[in-house]
Amino acid sequence: MNYLIFALRLMIWLLLTADFGLVNLAIGILVSLLLPQGRRGRATLWQWLSTLGKVVMAVPRAYIQAIEMIVRPHPHEAIVREPVDPTRAPGLIFLDIFTITFTPKTIVLHYNEEGWFEVHQLVEHRPEK
C-alpha cells in the first residue's frame, strides 16, 4: 500500500466531510483503500516519514527565505544541478520537487531520469562562470 496516497485520500475525505466520528472514519478508510491504485511504491515507511518531515520544515524555511529576499535583494540568477537517487519512488521524487519549488529562492526546472534536478536559483552575488 502506498502510504502517502492512502494518507492523502483519508485526509481529503475527513476534511471534506468535517466529521471525525467512528463510522465516517471507517467509511473514509474503506473508500481510500478501494479506490484504484497506481504503481506500487518501493519506499519504506521511514523514507516517507523523513520526506514528509522535510516538506513540513519547508514551510518555515520558505518564509525565512522570503524575508531574506525582502531584506537583501537577490538580483542574479543561476542554474545548478542537484543530484538525486534515481531509484527513489516516484511519489518521493514528487515530494522532493515540491520541497525545492515551494521555497521561493529555488525552482526545479527539469527532472532528468538519470538522477539530477536542474534547479534555478536566485543568488545575491553574481556567480563566477
Binding site: 520558505a62 518564509y63 522570503a66 529576499m69 519549488t101 515551494f102 521561493p104 529562492k105 525552482i107 534555478h120 536566485l122
Partner: peptide
C-alpha cells in the same frame, strides 16, 4: 516566477 511564489503561495 520566484517572486510570484513569494506573493501567491506564501
Amino acid at each position: 516566477l520566484h517572486f510570484l511564489s513569494v506573493s501567491d503561495t506564501l
